[in-house]
Design a protein around this nucleic acid. Structure first.
Lengths: 358, 358
DNA sequence: CGACAAAATGACAACATTGTCATTTCTCGT
DNA sequence: ACGAGAAATGACAATGTTGTCATTTTGTCG
């Protein structure tokens, strides 16, 4: 393969001038530049990124650790496509920043030794930074790389490593506010397990938003701890829902922990003769388009802003926003997801809403 | 960052010995090896891949061009997850071969200039080869890289570039054979558009398999040209199906062009009072697990072996199987998908099967 | 114990590029 | 036409590693 020397000789210039042309430096006469470009073309010259890296120590490569692809394939039921969306955001942002992305997907993001090994590989390639993406909002304990910027996406450690997280609390509040604005005063919450960070955050946010809207705890019952991928758990949910709607004054709306759960919930409602949104309004969470495309009833839901999170992670990595006050100030970054209105929420007529509430 | 020199000094050996330890060469005394490893550990030394590449010209990197991630995110309706599965296969195989995978996803795999640019980038990084994956079985016209092995996955050019393709014909035959073995003698085919390579291959294979099973063309009607993501097309399909089942002797089974179409078809059958598989047996194509998880009725279908194709592509790239006879002999490689039996096909009792056929 | 082969280690060049700094070539204003 | 300053170009070192070949150390056998 041709080198700068070959190009220089053919163009009748020094190797340094070739380097200047290749790197788009301004101090080259147009005529010279053109001659060099011709020579490059003719010889099919490609700059040797290795040699380049040795001098400049700017690899232009960003590393990413994610199990998005492997779990989308190997565990489609649980994983969904969340990780893919984060990867996409990272890809986009990298492209815009002119960086090349190197993704390591070993399937086992939890394996500390495995992650350490990946980090070592990345260090060998002198990547400019690493993004670690978790499949769901959680705490992690990673081996921290020595001289390598690291940004966590969809997860956090307790150690001040910069991270980008979904604003679960803000999103859940959005859902409640939307329902309240539509006139609902009796809203049930059917949530994820307590063991999930998102489960805890959203439940608390639901509670707080209801309180702020002046809804009593009796009017806003909380059912929690369901796993929509487990048949047993769904059976539990069925029973709980049945009981809930046996009340004298049942909810007019339900916030579900995620879209899959909302989908299962809607199926249950329809089976017991409740129509959505006629009899009961429903709000999901995640805005999982891959799931929603199969739903007959378009679901109003809150977006989990994975793609934006990926973008934000790259942004944080490359522009390394300086802490404005204090050092850990910008370490954790919340990304707010928006509410997507579809047709699973009905606006109650004021009379009916107040009529039932009073 | 520490270099071989630092390590050598600390361990009291020459840089060459350090290199030997790093590269696991056998001619190092255990004691020396240990000393060097200690030094490496202590200094947090990471071999500089750039410098390494300069000498050895073995980058250990495989390049891949795919729009899997971008289209899974941006166009979930059409794209599905096919590309993701290919990527997964490639990832796996790369890992097993100790190679690092560099994925370029610019979203526009059709853009020749864009692809050319990506190839240039890969060449700069001295990747050991490039895999180009198409989102569906098709012909492509790529700018061919000069000194870089290229393998096509899920696509082919007419120029003898090595490629890995799904065995659409073999798969469709499998479906027909399965139905015939279950006693079906009147089988309809509801297929993809003619403009698709897979559509043509599968239709022809269906025709051939039926002929080989001794089924007449009247008993095996072919309806073709539907697009399950288009409402208009689905309406057409509805009409065509209605007409088909008005016959005096309607089919007892239907092969659909893909799983999504099968899903829509089943919905239509149920609407007109036909139960699956009681009244009508159904076979899909693709084995798209991401879709199938939402189906109530488990669908018997033929796997599109994307993952295996990814693996095979890497295999071809790295081991570069020598042509056994002739030069283009191994250029095109067909990967057979298996039939996955679920519960959408009913075995007809022999009496009934023959009774209706005669 | 000495000789000789084998094993272990080392010295040094080469790889392809960019940074530093020096040198040459223009461009103007007089 | 000349000189000053700016613009363009070039010479050469430096980067961190591995390949080549030389040298030293170790082990073995008579």
């Amino acid at each position: 393969m041709a080198t700068v020397f070959d190009v220089a000789k053919l163009a009748g210039v020094s190797i340094k001038t070739v380097s200047r042309v290749v790197n788009d430096e301004p101090t080259v006469k147009p005529a010279t530049r053109h001659r060099v470009q011709q020579a490059i073309e003719k010889l099919d010259y490609r700059p040797h990124s290795g040699a380049r890296l040795m001098r400049s120590s700017k690899s232009g490569i960003v590393g990413m650790i994610s199990d998005a692809v492997s779990s989308a394939v190997e565990d489609p039921l649980n994983a969904g496509l969340s990780g893919i969306h984060i990867v996409r955001g990272v890809q986009e942002a990298c492209r815009e920043a002119g960086k090349i992305l190197m993704i390591a997907d070993e399937g086992a993001v939890d394996d500390r030794a495995g992650v350490a090994k990946l980090l070592r590989t990345f260090e060998s390639h002198r990547v400019e930074g690493v993004i670690y993406a978790a499949p769901f909002h959680r705490q992690v304990a990673l081996p921290l790389p020595k001289g390598l910027p690291l940004v966590l996406a969809n997860c956090f450690d307790g150690l001040g490593t910069p991270c980008v997280l979904p604003d679960d609390a803000g999103g859940q509040a959005l859902a409640v506010e939307h329902l309240v604005a539509a006139g609902h005063r009796k809203i049930a919450y059917v949530g994820l397990g307590e063991e999930l960070v998102a489960g805890r955050l959203r439940r608390d946010a639901f509670r707080r938003a209801c309180r702020e809207a002046g809804l009593s705890e009796t009017a806003t019952p909380i059912l929690i701890g369901f796993d929509a991928t487990s048949e047993i758990s769904l059976e539990d949910l069925r029973k709980s829902l049945a009981q809930l709607f046996k009340r004298t004054s049942p909810p007019t709306a339900v916030c579900f922990g995620n879209d899959l759960m909302a989908m299962r919930g809607i199926e249950m409602f329809e089976r017991i003769g409740l129509s959505v949104p006629g009899d009961i309004s429903v709000v999901g969470y995640d805005n999982d388009e891959n799931l929603l495309r199969y739903l007959k009833r378009p679901l109003t839901t809150v977006t989990l802003p994975y793609r934006e999170m990926g973008r934000a992670a790259v942004d944080t990595l490359l522009h390394r926003r300086e802490p404005i006050d204090g050092r850990a100030s910008a370490a954790s970054q919340l990304i707010r997801g928006e509410l997507v209105e579809r047709s699973s929420v009905q606006a109650l007529t004021p009379q009916r809403a107040t009529g039932q509430a009073t």
